[in-house]
Amino acid sequence: MKYVRFTNPEKEIGYGFVEGEKVHLINGSFLDPQSQPIDAWLPLDQVSLLAPVEPSKVVCVGLNYALHANELNHSLPEDPVIFIKPPTSVIGPDAEIIYPKISQRVDYEAELAVIIGAIIKNATEDEASKAILGYTCANDVTARDLQMKDGQWTRGKSFDTFCPIGPWVVTDIDPSKLDIQLFLNSEVKQSSNTQHFINSIPKLVSFISQVMTLYPGDVVLTGTPEGVGPMQPGDEVIVRIQSIGELRNTIVKDNKC
């Protein structure tokens, strides 16, 4: 199943799931177990896809690929390294990533995103697995110069538009062996596979739930592979993950005063 959140031609927000080249509408969010499909469809090319969920938080995992840790000169962590992006960082497919005026280097980071489907706290790995609704593509955009300057990651990771996710939430796939790539202006910059995770998804979600309650629609980013690098205004960046699809965004200057 491919669940989507979108605006229709009348600019109204709706929910549904993709069937071929059409969206089968749902009478509420796909995160609501009471929602049901209705007898209505829209052509996929007549809707504008939004970020598929509106999370209360985005919990990110750093250094979950050994080669990425090496390229940043970090030793492998004993426990998963986690940090948070605010909901204001979340944008959807085809939306613009704003390059902050106070940064001189903004990097891409292709990631597999986990979408939580149930409330969990202090979950076992089995309970964590059962609480996952599905998966989507993500870009953990990072102001690398500010991250390195601060010594902790909140400012460099948290700018508005710094968490593109989408284009949809895919259920019923095995996330443990998916090809993941990032293209910058059509050139491959990252290419790896989730089989190289240091920590598995059930372990990560369980670990995070020992710290904080996770709610339906919350997002867990699972780490980026090696090959991170800078983007510039005018660039197009695409995250492509096997069995999910593509997340495409463009970079623009911050023109606000």
Rank of each mutant, 00 (worst) to 15 (best):
G223R: 04
D235W: 11
Q36D: 03
S191M: 02
Q147G: 01
V228P: 03
E19A: 03
T213E: 12
M231P: 07
I97C: 07
M148R: 08
Y3S: 02
D107N: 06
K189F: 06
G245V: 07
S103T: 13
R105L: 09
Y215G: 07
T222K: 07
N139G: 11
P33D: 03
A95W: 04
S206P: 05
S191W: 05
L44D: 03
Y108L: 12
K2G: 07
V188F: 09
V219D: 08
A138Y: 01
P52E: 13
G156Q: 02
Y99Q: 04
T142L: 06
T250P: 06
R248T: 15
P202W: 10
I201G: 07
L42Q: 05
G229H: 11
R144V: 06
E226S: 15
D39Q: 15
N249Y: 10
I13L: 12
S191R: 14
I82Q: 04
F159G: 04
N193E: 08
G92H: 03
P52G: 15
S158T: 09
Q147A: 04
E10H: 00
E78D: 09
Q46W: 00
Q36M: 13
H196K: 12
Q46N: 05
S29W: 00
S29F: 05
F207H: 14
F30T: 00
K121V: 03
G223Q: 01
N249E: 09
T194F: 00
I251E: 04
R248Q: 12
N8P: 01
G227I: 08
D45F: 00
G20D: 03
V141Q: 06
D235P: 14
S158C: 13
P77F: 00
D94A: 11
V90L: 13
D150T: 07
L25S: 01
E12N: 13
V58A: 11
F159Q: 02
K121I: 07
G234W: 07
V106C: 04
Q46K: 04
A128E: 08
G20W: 05
P100C: 03
D179T: 15
T222H: 07
N249K: 11
S56E: 13
V47L: 06
S209C: 08
D94Q: 13
V211G: 07
P43T: 02
P55W: 15
P230S: 14
D107M: 07
H24R: 15
Q104C: 05
N70M: 15
R155G: 06
K22E: 00
S103G: 02
S35D: 01
V90R: 11
A113T: 09
Y135Q: 12
A66Q: 14
E12H: 09
P43Y: 00
K256T: 14
P230Y: 14
S186H: 13
E226M: 11
Q181W: 05
E111T: 05
V58S: 08
I13W: 04
L49A: 08
K57M: 15
P202G: 06
K130N: 13
T222F: 09
S56I: 12
L112N: 02
K22H: 04
A110Q: 10
